[in-house]
Amino acid sequence: MPKTTKKTETANNLTDRQLKEMYRRMVLIRRFEEVAFEKALAGNYANYHGAMGQEAIPVGACFDLTPEDGTMITHRGLGVPITRGVTVKDIFAGLYGRADSPTRGRIPVYHMGEPKLGVLTGTSMVGSVIPLASGKALANKLDKNNNVVISFFGDGAANRGDFHEGINLAGVWNLAIVFFCENNFYAKSMPLEKSTAGGSIIRRADGYGLPSMLVDGNDVLAVYDATKQAVARAREGGGPTFIECETYRWTPHSTAGDREFARTEEELASWKAKCPVRRLEALLLETGQASSEELNAFDEAAQREIEEAIDWVEKASDPGPEVALENVYV
């Protein structure tokens, strides 16, 4: 039976500069999440599915990827495109549906593909991206390259048929892919224990012969370390790996469905105490690998970048009507 390893500790062999870069990205994603949620609540766009509190996952998982490696997200988790190099300006342009955005206002920004950065085009259907990601990994195999795909999804996706079919295909074809479950314990309002027979997502990986790792998703170094192993294994032809990261979103399911049922204030407070950004900050300060001035400077730069993006996007033009009709067929 494939081995499940539980990872909470990490061999920290990253340089100070790399660690500070991780912090820079995490604080940028945090500030983005705050403003993206607030701007949706204020009615600037219809909806936003926040991932505040989950910033360690995109930064840790994608840190060592090359632009030839693919990442697939679902409708939550814009931290992935941000950490891969999509600018917050482009993402806000997409959220506001402006003409001068990579999506030209045509599609939800979280589906946006950015081929030169390895960001793969996704879909809104929870879990449907998993076979799509396997398809990209299949193309890599047929092309005989050693690029890797990471398919991100939430705990809710693990009950979709596409989860099982996409993982099964990757298993039988021995594809270079990492299946990455961001388990935040709630699929919209449905708690894991009510949705998931057997009570465990990661144990499902055993059924498909995949080695798996259960990771503290609020520890960016643990996420980095686990993903690095899985990616290395995939690159060497070892096949797919399953990673489950336990984490928690601080915001409701979305700004359009912001009612809370199962989640309690106490539970939220306990997870806020495990804030991934503060955790890395504390580590860097404790080890002396960064000063508080340096970290504050990253935070201020992030806030400035977002303010500039908002100033621009609020004045930017909407697309002309002809844009709606283009490229239905190519």
């Binding site: 396997s134 990209k136 299949l138 047929l142 079919e165 996409g166 099964n168 295909l169």
Partner: peptide, 26 residues
């Protein structure tokens, strides 16, 4: 068998995978 790919009975899976491969140039 790298040009003629036999799939399991898994229509959602392999249609999705075919779209993924198509987007990658196949």
């Amino acid at each position: 068998d790298q040009r003629v790919l036999e799939t399991p009975i898994s229509e959602c899976g392999f249609v999705g995978a075919a779209v993924g491969a198509a987007l990658a140039g196949y």
